[in-house]
Amino acid sequence: MDTLQEIPGLIKGWLNIPLFKIGADPVTLWTIVSLVVLFVLLLWLTKKLKNLIVLKLLANSRIDIGVRQATGSIVRYIIIAIGFVVILQTVGIDLSTVTVLAGALGIGVGFGLQSITNNLVSGLILLFERPIKIGDRIEVGEVTGDVVDISVRATTVITNDNIAIIIPNAEFIGSTVTNWSYTTRDVRFNFPVRVSYREDPEAVRKLLLEVAGSHPGVLQERKSDVLFQEFGESCFQFILRVWTRDYTDRPGVLRSELNYAISRKFREHGIEIPYPQRDIHIKDGQLTVAAPPPSHAP
Rank of each mutant, 00 (worst) to 15 (best):
F191G: 05
L287V: 15
I138V: 15
Q5I: 14
Q114W: 12
F228M: 00
G270V: 12
L287C: 12
V187C: 05
I74M: 10
G110W: 14
G285H: 12
V37C: 12
R198Q: 12
Q89N: 15
E230V: 01
L55W: 03
I107E: 02
S263Q: 15
A290S: 15
N51L: 08
R241W: 05
Q5C: 08
G13K: 07
V40T: 07
S196Y: 14
I167W: 09
L124A: 08
L42E: 02
N190A: 10
V140R: 01
A24R: 07
I80V: 13
L38Q: 03
S196L: 08
S175M: 05
T288Y: 14
P168V: 03
I165A: 09
T144M: 08
G213M: 05
R264Y: 05
V121S: 04
I116E: 09
Y275L: 11
L88G: 08
L88N: 08
L258G: 06
G217P: 04
L19K: 03
L240T: 07
P192T: 10
G123E: 10
G270T: 14
K206S: 12
I53L: 01
S224H: 08
L287W: 11
T288V: 14
H296A: 11
F172V: 07
V177M: 03
V218F: 00
W14S: 01
F128N: 03
N118V: 02
K265V: 11
I163C: 01
P131M: 14
P298N: 04
F238A: 04
V211S: 02
G66M: 13
F172A: 07
I271G: 06
V289A: 06
G106M: 13
I82Q: 05
D146V: 15
R153I: 01
T288G: 07
I271T: 12
I63R: 03
I22V: 15
R68Q: 10
A154K: 06
N119F: 08
P293K: 10
L38G: 08
S61F: 09
E272C: 04
G232I: 02
D2H: 14
V100C: 03
P251M: 03
I273Y: 11
H269Q: 09
L43H: 04
Q220N: 04
I173Y: 00
R68C: 12
Q229E: 15
S256V: 01
L55D: 15
I262C: 05
T31R: 06
L227G: 00
W44D: 03
Q89S: 14
L101S: 08
I65P: 04
V253G: 01
I280D: 02
L58E: 00
Q5M: 12
P168H: 07
R205Y: 00
H215P: 07
K223I: 14
V109S: 08
D146Q: 11
A297S: 11
F228N: 00
L95I: 13
